[in-house]
C-alpha cells in the first residue's frame, strides 16, 4: 500500500500508539542490557556498575562444565543443524520444485502438512526412537531431531527460491552438458544464494536458541548447551544472583542480537517466505 492514512497528526498518533505497544518489550531488553553490568537493579533503575557479573567467563559456574565447552557445544549444535538443514533442504527443495518423479505431489503435500503439524507433540515418541537408535543423550541425536523437525519449513522455503529460477537457464545447463546434479550444483545453487543465506541465518538462530530438544534429549554435563545451562541457573538462582544470570543471558543473546541487527531483512523475508502462498 502506498498511500498513508489521513493527516500528519493521525500519522504521529499512530506512531506513538505502536511505540507504546512496544514499551514492555523495550523495557525488558533494556533491563537485560543494564542488569548484566549492574550490582543491583530496582525495576528498570540500575545501581552501581560492575563487571563481576561476567566472572563466569573465567571462573565458570559451580557444578558445570566450563562456559567455553558449553558455548562450543551450542555452536557445534547450531552450525551442524544449519549445514544439515540447508544442504538437505536445498536438495529436496530442488527435487520438489524441478523434478518430475512419481510421488512428487504426495511428497509436496506431506511437506506442507508437516509444515503445519505441531512437531512438539511427537517428543515422547522421538525420545523412544532416539533411545532405540542409541542416540539419546548425544549431541548428534539432538542435531538430527532438530534438523528433521525444521526440514519441512526449510524445504518449503528452498522450493520457493528454486521456483523463481528460469527454466530456460536450467535447460540451457542440461544442453551445455550438465547432469541434473551438476546443473543443481553449478547453475541453480549459485543463483539462490540469497535463499541459502536466509535459511542459514534462520536455522542458525533457531539452533542457537533451541531449548526444549537438548533439555529433553540430553542429560549429561558434556552435552550441555547454553540454553540448558541457563535453565539450570534459573533453577539454582531463582532467589539469588540476577546479575550473574543476566550477564550469562546477555552472553548467550549476543550472537542473536548481532545477527538480528545485520540481517533483519533476511529474517523478515524468511518469516514471510515460510508462509508463502498463504496470502490468498
Amino acid at each position: 500500500m502506498t498511500e498513508h492514512a489521513g493527516s500528519r497528526w493521525i500519522q504521529v498518533f499512530l506512531i506513538i500508539l505502536v511505540a507504546l505497544l512496544c514499551v514492555p518489550l523495550v523495557v525488558m531488553y533494556i533491563w537485560l542490557l543494564e542488569a548484566a553490568f549492574a550490582k543491583q537493579t530496582y525495576g528498570i533503575v540500575p545501581s552501581g556498575f560492575t563487571l563481576s557479573n561476567w566472572r563466569f567467563l573465567w571462573e565458570g559456574f559451580k557444578n558445570m562444565p566450563s562456559i567455553w565447552r558449553i558455548t562450543f557445544n551450542t555452536l557445534v549444535f547450531a552450525a551442524i543443524v544449519t549445514v544439515a538443514e540447508v544442504f538437505f533442504a536445498s536438495l529436496t527443495g530442488y527435487a520438489l520444485s524441478r523434478m518430475k518423479f512419481p510421488g512428487r505431489r504426495i511428497f509436496l503435500s506431506f511437506t506442507l502438512v508437516l509444515h503445519a503439524f505441531p512437531a512438539v507433540t511427537l517428543l515422547i515418541a522421538i525420545f523412544y526412537v532416539l533411545l532405540v537408535m542409541g542416540l539419546y543423550d548425544t549431541l548428534l541425536g539432538v542435531i538430527l531431531v532438530k534438523a528433521a523437525l525444521e526440514l519441512p519449513l526449510g524445504v518449503w522455503i528452498m522450493k520457493g527460491f528454486f521456483d523463481g529460477i528460469s527454466w530456460d537457464m536450467e535447460m540451457s545447463a542440461l544442453v551445455d552438458g550438465c547432469s541434473r546434479f551438476r546443473a543443481w550444483w553449478e547453475v541453480l545453487i549459485p543463483n539462490i544464494r540469497p535463499g541459502i543465506a536466509a535459511l542459514s541465518i534462520f536455522s542458525f538462530l533457531s539452533g542457537w536458541s533451541e531449548f526444549l530438544l537438548p533439555y529433553i534429549f540430553t542429560s549429561s554435563f558434556e552435552n550441555f548447551t547454553l540454553s540448558v545451562m541457563l535453565r539450570r541457573l534459573i533453577g539454582d538462582f531463582r532467589f539469588v544472583d540476577y546479575g550473574l544470570l543476566t550477564a550469562a543471558g546477555l552472553y548467550y543473546m549476543l550472537p542473536v542480537l548481532i545477527f538480528f541487527i545485520f540481517t533483519q531483512e533476511y529474517l523478515l523475508n524468511i518469516y514471510a517466505g515460510g508462509t508463502k502462498g498463504t496470502q490468498i
Binding site: S166, D168, M169, M171, S172, V175, G177, C178, P190, N191
Partner: peptide, 19 residues
C-alpha cells in the same frame, strides 16, 4: 540425456548464467 546429444541451443531469454 541432453548432455550426450552434442547439441547447442539458444533460448528466447538467452538463459545466460548470471553468476
Amino acid at each position: 540425456l541432453p548432455k550426450d546429444r552434442n547439441i547447442g541451443m539458444v533460448f528466447q531469454s538467452y538463459a545466460l548464467y548470471p553468476h
